[in-house]
Amino acid sequence: MAFGSRLVEVISLLELTRQSLRAWRSEQAGIALGFAGLLAVLFMIGTDPTQLRGVASPLGERIASNTTRSGPLPVYVPDLYQFGWTLVVGVYIAARVATATARDIGDGTLELLLTAPISRTRVLRARLFAMVFGFVGMTVFVGTVFVALSVLTETTIDPIVVWMIHALPVPFFLLCIVLGLFVGTITDRGRLAGLASGLLVLGVFAIGQLSPGSPLELISPLYYYDPVAIMHGTSVTAQQIGVPIVVALIVGGLSRLRFNRLDLS
């Protein structure tokens, strides 16, 4: 393909990605700020073990179990990441992508967009990229706040642990995006698509708890993402991260196939 055509393709992909990013940035900023606020509260109240022991003795026990090689992490922070960050962002990602895709098909904006020389695959890819940029931005922001709070509260945490806590949900987030894309190509009703994909992500998340030992468990983030275990130096295998990524690639391929064959009406 000529360099000029390739350049036009890249520019149009960037333009489509930029449009989605613009549309979603306030929501993503809201989620990131909200989570950062919760982190700040937990860091402020949770770093004084004496104070926490005064609140309840089990909390004191949690501090002991959360003690890293470098020092203690505030209580509930691991839970906040495992059940709050992963689940909230996962559900948001899937529901947002599904709603936007279904709505574009249903209200005809996709038809108008496709009057331009862009392929449907590129539209889908742009949506994927926009959400990847979105959650990477959110993760970087929350990670920075996490580090800043650690410094402010003199909580010393191994940088590798910080990196792992924030990077390991990424395979699950990728899976959430393609689940959202897939649901968005099944129905052209935005709300229904958002609700269905949110429930689907909840189901994927819960599989880890509901059916331990089954093959389905492998796609649940609960299978490989446990901040407490990470702090205790438990390593994560390539297989644990690879399974959600492979499933995401398969679902992504199916979404693309379905989207390309879809009749717009």
């Binding site: 209200d107 005809g108 904006t109 038809e111 108008l112 009057t115």
Partner: peptide, 9 residues
């Protein structure tokens, strides 16, 4: 160029 009957913006 394409001009749909009722373009959705």
């Amino acid at each position: 160029g394409f001009l749909p009957s009722s373009p959705s913006f």
